[in-house]
Amino acid sequence: MVDRITVEVARYRPEKEAEPSFQAYEVPCRKDWVILDGLNHIKDHLDGTLSYRWSCRMGVCGSCGMTVNGEPKLTCATFLADYAPGPLRVEPLRNFPIIRDVIVDIDDFMQKLSAVKPWLIRDAEKPLAEGEYRQTPAQLDEYKQFSMCINCMLCYSACPVYGLDPEFIGPAAIALAQRYNLDSRDQGARQRDEVLSKHEGIWSCTFVGECTKVCPKHVDPAGAIQRYKLSSAMGSVKDFLMPWRGK
């Protein structure tokens, strides 16, 4: 006999409802089941109309982020049994428009992500004959932490600043900008600075720190933002004290 747990899932069917409501399902609460297993059980056996995103079910694709009992979580990495005896509530990620059930619209994040140019930028590529761009382990360590981001958007969901001001470029985009800025092979910091040093860039952030707490990959976006503030501010102070410097 397997224990059972009640899962209250947010439902929103825009063609017939004006706002979301909760629907309760009872699913087996197996020791080795994550919340996503519970949702798949609902979809396969109880109610095929439930809509949600998922793909890899192993914490790599970043598509199954939802709000579980008020906290942003990867549902593939959060065990049902941790919420026993239940009931537990599964809602869409906060701070995003809801399309259907627990599916949110991620266009805004995708636009912000590409705005910071998260790829290696070179002034000029060196000829192939000169070989690859080599990097020491110490140089790798400089940005490795920020490269772990899987774009799951839990940080945007946790960030009150993004919730209040949707123009804020947001935690993951800034962390990924830093991932490339701190890469010894990259020369694009100046281009990214145009986006990052705006008010909607780093300066909107009030260091709430929630983004870092909820990150399933320990990226520390809050740290990335504060580091960028510090280096940007030091640059400004130098410009201010030595106006003849740079141009």
Partner: peptide, 17 residues
């Protein structure tokens, strides 16, 4: 550096100090 004429970095550094 044309874009960099914002006062925000200076205010932030004073806030931090």
């Amino acid at each position: 550096m044309m874009a960099r004429r914002s006062i925000e970095p200076l205010v932030w550094i004073l806030f931090s100090v």
